[in-house]
């Protein structure tokens, strides 16, 4: 549904995105794609290019089978877009606004009525659909914007930071809604909240500094980080011989030892080639030591995120 190849965009001399290439919304990625990155990573810029708001400097992008540059109108008819700040006309009532947007999408009156009714239910606009948008709270406005993005039932929906500014209950409801949308639509959402992306997305693309750092299913990404993770083991015995014995195990790269009321607390770093827990256990039992704890320190996506963004900033 979304194909991006070598996309680059500058603002003046500042490179917003740099040679992005990815494809999303196919069998392999599932329907809910998370575009994850810190502020200024080029998320909004990418979305603006994909929604035909801005042209890229170079590269090709297509959405729903149409080129975003040369077949812009075909793309625009097939996408729904909620920009980051959910811009709306304050003087209009929510219902009026949705009808206005429906007309721009050339929907006939009966279709529009049905569509407005449908999105009103889906986005829980019932309480304030007839109030002027200018009087609505940030969360309500966000929902009106979301309703607008769903109005013409587009195959692809772009959401730029969809849960920003919402209260916890609304965040949970919105996430639920997005997960449901995945059944019939391709949803491309940007976020800087890892937890969110981890929860709702079927595929995650991590960007920073305008470049893709990693991509894959959320579980896969976690796995990739935790594979090279640390094993914490507490063993009783002579610390020097324990450390040297553990170090000699295959796959172990580094061992830190810390004395803790008669026990040795070992932090074992492996190269991720395989699971070394069994080897550690066998070693302990062969030598006749005691073992009171062994656990894998599973790195979260968050750790990964902090690590890569830190790497990015030091690289600059």
């Amino acid at each position: 549904m979304i194909e991006v190849k070598n996309l680059t965009k500058h603002y003046g001399s500042n490179r917003a995105i740099d040679n992005l290439t990815f494809s999303a919304g196919s069998e392999s990625t599932g329907n809910i794609i998370g575009f994850l990155g810190p502020n200024g990573a080029g998320k909004s810029t990418t979305i603006r290019i994909l929604t035909c708001f801005q042209p890229a400097d170079s590269g090709v992008a297509s959405v729903a089978g149409y080129n975003v540059f040369s077949q812009s109108m075909d793309v625009r008819r097939r996408i729904g877009y909620l920009p980051e700040s959910a811009p709306l006309y304050g003087e209009m009532r929510a219902r009026e606004y949705l009808h206005f947007r429906g007309k721009l999408h050339r929907m006939a009156k009966p279709d529009r009525d049905a569509a407005v009714k449908r999105v009103t239910e889906r986005c829980w606009l019932g309480d304030f659909i007839d109030r002027p948008i200018g009087q609505l709270s940030k969360g309500m406005r966000q929902r009106v914007g979301l309703a607008d993005a769903l109005l013409h039932d587009p195959p692809v929906i772009f959401l730029d930071e969809p849960t920003i500014g919402l209260d916890p209950v609304q965040i949970r409801e919105t996430r639920k809604l997005i997960r449901n949308l995945g059944d019939h639509h391709v949803v491309f959402l940007s976020s800087h909240i890892l937890h969110e992306v981890e929860q709702i997305c079927t595929h995650v693309i991590v960007v920073a500094g305008g470049r893709i750092l990693a991509s894959g299913a959320p579980a896969e990404l976690s796995e990739r980080i935790s594979a090279g993770s640390r094993l914490i083991a507490e063993i009783k015995g002579d610390s020097e011989s324990i450390v040297s014995a553990v170090k000699s195990l295959s796959g172990v790269e580094n061992v830190d030892c810390e004395r803790l009321d008669g026990w040795n607390r070992l932090a074992i770093e492996s190269n991720g080639a395989g699971d070394i827990r069994e080897d550690v256990f066998k070693l302990v039992s062969d030598k006749g030591w005691s073992l009171r704890e062994m656990r894998r320190e599973v790195a979260s996506l968050e750790d990964f995120f902090i690590k890569i963004t830190a790497e990015q900033s030091t690289a600059r």
Binding site: R48, T51, C52, F53, M73, R76, R77, I79, Y81, P83, S85, P87, L88, Y89, G90, R101, L104, H105, R106, G145, D148
Partner: peptide, 12 residues
């Protein structure tokens, strides 16, 4: 206000 963004990403 940024409403230009929703306008110019609709078929207009």
């Amino acid at each position: 206000t940024g409403t230009i963004e929703t306008l110019m990403t609709a078929p207009v």
